[in-house]
Amino acid sequence: MTTTTTTPAPPATAPARRPGPVTLGLRQGRLEITQFLRSRESVVFTMGFPVIMIVIFASIFGDQIAPGVSYTQYFITGMIATGLMTVSFQNLGIWIPMERDRGVLKRYRGTPMPKWVWFAGKVLMVVAIGVAETVLLLAVSVAMFDLALPGTAAKWLTFGWVSVLGVTACTLCGIAISSLARTARGGPAVVTPVALVLQFISGVFFVFTELPSWMQQVAALFPLKWMCQGLRAVFLPESFGAREPGGSFELDRVALVLVAWCVIGLVLCLTTFRWTTKRDG
């Protein structure tokens, strides 16, 4: 009499759990931040340039532009806005054409990863670097140039929404303008002159009301001018609002223009963004 033995079936393995949307976005954001930190040139320029400019201009101009307001205090608010524009508009406008030219975006589009994850990674990188840069600027300005931090919750709230709207508008515009560069080398040539011109006409290096009227009108069409004005409302005395072109800081108009540019930037992104170069089809 023979007995047969049966081998027990191996236990069924549970299917691998797919990461959720939040996890995907955070992973891509961590990857983008890591890639940014590995580029020493980008880190030094993005984080160090605003600080260097503050030290240089503060050493050259030491006079007051209004009672209780030094030129350095005025300049610092513009450099905070410029720093946010640099990490979003300028950096994305230069980096994305490089990735497109190397075929990174083409390969990414061929993966099953949702396309929004790539954009989420860029946004998280901009936010992380923008926060770090702003904290560094504030620390240097407080330690070396006696910048008075906002003393009320309302001013900190204003600082928050001006920064968020400004970074959002600049990020979307940076993604949109990246499509103008045909090659990786074309990115800096397209974006850098635009960024420099906006800085000169938006009240970053000079007191805005001392610029020619036509220059003020041109600057008022773009978000950087309104970012600077909103930040002046945070860091400068209320009395300085009378020296603004509208006779006040016009925070309602600041919000309106920045929101409008967020919408314009989103429309431009949706209609112009390209994953491949023209030679790739």
Rank of each mutant, 00 (worst) to 15 (best):
A153R: 12
T183Y: 11
W161V: 10
V87H: 00
P193C: 14
V267E: 06
E133K: 05
S163N: 09
S70R: 07
A219S: 10
G62T: 15
P150W: 02
V254N: 05
E250R: 11
R279V: 14
W261P: 01
A143T: 07
F36S: 03
T23E: 15
V162W: 01
R232Y: 02
T192M: 15
T46V: 10
T23L: 14
K225E: 12
S248G: 13
G151S: 14
V131Y: 11
R182T: 02
L136W: 08
I177F: 10
G78E: 00
C269M: 14
Q229L: 08
R40G: 14
L124K: 06
A153V: 10
G247E: 04
V207N: 02
Q73M: 11
A255Q: 12
I65V: 14
V44Y: 09
F145G: 07
P212Q: 03
V43A: 08
P8C: 09
P67C: 12
C228F: 05
P97A: 12
E244L: 08
E32W: 00
V104H: 07
F273R: 04
A139V: 15
T152Q: 06
V254G: 09
G78T: 08
A148V: 14
T77Y: 01
P11C: 04
F206Q: 09
T158M: 10
M98G: 14
I33G: 03
A195K: 04
T6H: 11
E238T: 05
T2N: 05
Q217I: 04
M79H: 01
T13S: 06
G247C: 13
F61S: 13
G246F: 05
